[in-house]
Amino acid sequence: MPAHAEDIAVTHYRDVYPGIDIATRLKDAAKDKVIYITGASRGIGESTVYAYAKAGASGIFITARSVADLETVAANAKKISPTVEVVPCAVDVTDAKQVGESVRKCVDKFGRIDVAISNAGYLGRRAKIGDSDPDDWWMAVTVSVRGAFNVIHHSIKHLVQTKGYAILVSSAGAQIRHPTASGYQSAKHQLNRFAEFIQVEYGSEGVKVFSIHPGRVPTKLAMSEPSIIPYLTDKAELAAHAMVRLTSGSEDYLSGRYVSVDWDLDELAKRRKEIEEDDLLKNRLDVGSLANAL
């Protein structure tokens, strides 16, 4: 029996489509919500700030290592929505104390957190395991996994209070075993499992969580790896708008699962019963026919 495919049979998009259009389908989908975002100074994180501002968020707390870049993003967001308040804060997501302090500042400012998005990432130099720089290899894990843990560790009690949402920015690479990419792809795979644990531990308290593939976007981070540049064909807005929809309440049945923003979410919803009954879109060992006795 061949291994099951690791992508699904729905329409795939490269840009915003009607199902995630904030100007129409998702108008006011984030109305009055408070959003906390890491890695918000550029790329997908920056685009996500603008999407939530356009969708009606009242407060957006944005973090990255460069406060100057964040201030530019905040000013741009105000142009999109004069009523949104955007607070920039310099944070290294690998520093638990800094993350905790930023979450406290967010709650002190806005009173709550409705959506926490762990977006910060790191893409190191590609090399086979034996040829890798150990510090560089572990940095991918530290930024993606430890960074996500720090965000959830400090924000989860607030998400319980609001019955809110957590999004972990993973990657389609989590499902791939590409030679020379073991650090990055292993880290993203671990994020998918971490999302499942958040669901197991806090789903009954109203928290919803998604581990997402944000598309193949030509961000500065992605462009640093020449071998993948030809595949970077998606728009950052695809991920940003999809996140607004995922946190709007219509896709709560996907909580605890891996979701690609490339997927048509309306087509996916038609297979909701199948997803729920077979508990799909989660990490598991595929034993195939070995599950059957001889």
Rank of each mutant, 00 (worst) to 15 (best):
K105G: 09
E201L: 07
D135W: 11
S211H: 03
V200L: 15
R125F: 02
V49P: 01
Q199W: 10
R177E: 12
L238R: 09
A40C: 03
Q190G: 14
S182K: 01
W137P: 04
G164M: 05
A29R: 04
D108T: 12
P18G: 06
Q199D: 13
A140R: 06
D264L: 09
P214E: 07
D278C: 06
T162A: 02
G256V: 05
S58Y: 08
E277H: 05
D69K: 14
L159R: 04
R284K: 14
F194R: 01
I228L: 12
D135I: 11
S211Q: 07
A77W: 07
F149D: 06
F194Y: 15
A9P: 08
I176G: 00
G124V: 01
I117K: 02
A239G: 01
H4F: 14
I129P: 03
A57F: 11
L70S: 09
I156C: 08
G203F: 04
D133L: 08
E201S: 05
P18S: 08
R257G: 04
D279C: 08
N150A: 01
T63H: 05
P218S: 07
V103S: 05
Y13M: 02
Y165T: 08
V87D: 10
V91Y: 09
A90D: 01
R112V: 14
S260W: 05
K188V: 10
W138E: 04
N119H: 01
T72K: 14
Y258V: 06
A5Y: 11
P88Q: 08
N76Y: 03
V99Y: 05
M223S: 15
C106M: 13
L168E: 00
D234T: 03
A140W: 00
E277G: 05
D108L: 10
N283S: 13
A9E: 14
G164F: 02
P18E: 03
E46H: 08
G124Q: 03
I62H: 00
A174K: 02
I22S: 04
L254D: 09
G45V: 10
D286S: 09
R112S: 13
N292S: 11
G173H: 06
V141Y: 14
